[in-house]
């Protein structure tokens, strides 16, 4: 029996042996399935692909943001002042919107964001009418592109984080099943088997003992009987024979009753 802590607290009975065997089978099936899922998730089409795209998107973001902030500087140069407040106040509804949808990658739901622009929603078209209007519009276009890059990046990043989490969970489960649950169940089965064997052996030994004792008793009873017969024959009292016959059945009953108690 290896390590009492490594088995489940069950009574070593045949019923629990059956349960354990079913459990072991279930664990093995589950292990196989999870292993396959983990392989599917880590295959070269998902995670490395996503990391590559994140890398690309980040580089793109760096470029676009740089251009965008320079175009903002251009606006400041052309307008010759701060128009931030004016822009803030004249914006009424969002022109640039994000739609979220779900994608299914080997049983994992990944959110994907999609950016789109509503048409005919140009709240500050007239900003900088007197001067700098073109720069303002251009700046807006550039920033729209920058936000687009950000949305793409956000979508990839979220997918990556979720996928990473799922892969971790799956691997943890695979490992748990492989290294904890299966050995423990096996141990339990072994334990139950050995306990049951021991019980069998004990039983066998006891039965043997009982048989021995019975033999001994029978032998003793035979010996006594022989002695009595010999005495009777020696005394020659033939009429007393029925008396002896009457008493023997009672003796046999008593002996049987004693045996019951021993059992």
């Amino acid at each position: 029996m290896s390590g009492a802590g490594d088995r489940e607290p069950v009574f070593p009975t045949r019923q629990s042996l059956g349960l354990m065997k079913a459990k072991l089978k279930g664990a093995e099936t589950g292990h196989n399935l999870l292993k396959r899922k983990s392989e599917a998730l880590t295959n070269p089409n998902t995670v490395p692909e996503i990391t590559r795209r994140i890398d690309e998107a980040k580089r793109k973001m760096g470029r676009v943001m740089q251009i965008a902030s320079l175009s903002l500087a251009e606006v400041t140069y052309a307008v010759g002042g701060n128009i931030g407040y004016q822009i803030q106040e004249s914006a009424k509804s969002a022109r640039f919107r994000v739609r979220a949808k779900q994608e299914n990658v080997s049983g994992v739901l990944l959110p994907a964001f999609e950016a789109y622009q509503t048409e005919g929603n140009n709240d500050f078209a007239m900003t900088g009418l007197g001067k700098g209007g073109q720069q303002v519009q251009r700046c807006r276009e550039t920033y729209a592109r920058a936000v687009e890059a950000l949305v793409e990046l956000a979508s990839l990043q979220t997918a990556f984080v979720i996928l990473d989490e799922v892969i971790k969970v799956v691997n943890r489960r695979v490992n748990a099943i492989e290294h904890v649950i299966i050995p423990r169940t096996e141990n339990t089965i072994k334990y139950i088997n050995s306990e049951l064997d021991e019980l069998d052996r004990e039983e066998f030994y006891r039965l043997k003992k009982v048989a021995n004792k019975k033999q001994r008793d029978t032998a003793a009873a035979d010996a006594e009987m022989k002695k009595k017969n010999a005495e009777r024959e020696a005394n020659g009292e033939k009429h007393k024979a029925p008396e002896v016959d009457d008493s023997t059945p009672a003796d046999i009953l008593q002996a049987e009753g004693d045996e019951d108690i021993i059992f």
Binding site: L129, G130, K131, G133
Partner: peptide, 16 residues
Amino acid sequence: DRRAINITLNSFGTEL
């Protein structure tokens, strides 16, 4: 002149 030209150029595509 500059304002007139700028206003004209910037008003293309707006509701002005």
